[in-house]
Simulated assay, not measured.
Amino acid sequence: MEIGAGVLTTLAATPLSTAMREGAWLYPIVEIVHIAGFAVLVGSVVLFDLRVLGFARNLPVAELGRHLLRWALASLILVIPAGLLLFSAHPVELADNRVFQLKLVLIALAGLNALAFHLLPYRSVAGWDRNYAAPPLARFGAVLSILLWLGVISCGRMLAYV
């Protein structure tokens, strides 16, 4: 843990970290970029999950997935660098913050849930692509996805208060 703490302390002393903490506009601008990226990411995911849950059954699941996946992946171009910059402003404090740790765990679980969805129920999407109910495992994954991403958003928002 000592090595990790040393790395975090070194990161906190960098000019970029200092600028993020002390600049009047840099942190809020980066936070807005992060939130905008998250809106696109989570919006895309939730729209897809709602389709899997049975809304708008006339839209083909596979076609909607291809369309929304591009938006979700593109949003990562905003979310990841902005998140790293936000972390760099207070790395020692955030690394010790239980809410931040939970946010990272929920993001990892959301990623694993998406991977499981694509490896398991989505392989049979041709059978339920349009006008049919998704299999129970797909619907379970969609509900879990929505709950996990709501948890990530909640944790991100709570960081301002804990």
Rank of each mutant, 00 (worst) to 15 (best):
T9H: 13
L84T: 01
Q101A: 02
L148H: 06
A12Y: 04
V52M: 12
R66V: 07
A39F: 11
W149L: 03
D129C: 01
V125Q: 09
A160N: 13
Y161V: 08
P91M: 01
V7P: 11
L73Q: 06
G127H: 14
Y161N: 00
L109M: 07
I32R: 09
W128Y: 07
L26F: 12
L159E: 10
L86A: 03
V92G: 08
F38L: 15
F48G: 00
A134T: 07
V105I: 12
C155T: 08
R130Q: 14
F117P: 10
L41A: 08
A5W: 14
A12L: 12
R157D: 03
G141E: 07
I80G: 01
A19E: 09
A72L: 14
T10R: 05
W71T: 00
M20L: 15
L159P: 07
P28C: 13
G151R: 14
R51F: 12
L73K: 07
L69H: 12
E2L: 10
N113M: 05
L106Q: 03
E2R: 03
P28Q: 11
S145W: 04
H118R: 10
G54A: 10
A95M: 13
P91I: 03
L64S: 07
I153W: 05
G83V: 01
I29T: 14
G111K: 11
G156P: 06
S44L: 10
V105F: 14
R130S: 03
D96C: 05
L159M: 13
Y132T: 00
F100R: 06
G37L: 07
L148W: 12
H118I: 02
L64T: 02
L150F: 13
D96S: 13
K103W: 08
R51T: 02
L120R: 06
I35D: 05
A89Q: 00
R66F: 04
P15Y: 06
A13N: 08
L147F: 07
G43I: 02
K103N: 09
R98P: 09
R157C: 03
L148N: 01
S88Q: 10
L47K: 01
L41T: 00
G151K: 13
L73C: 01
D129N: 13
R98L: 12
L137Q: 04
Q101T: 07
L53P: 01
H34K: 11
V45E: 04
T10P: 07
A114K: 04
D49R: 11
I80K: 03
L137S: 05
L69R: 15
A110K: 06
G43A: 03
F55D: 07
V79L: 10
S75Q: 02
S145Q: 04
H118M: 09
P135H: 01
A82G: 03
P136A: 12
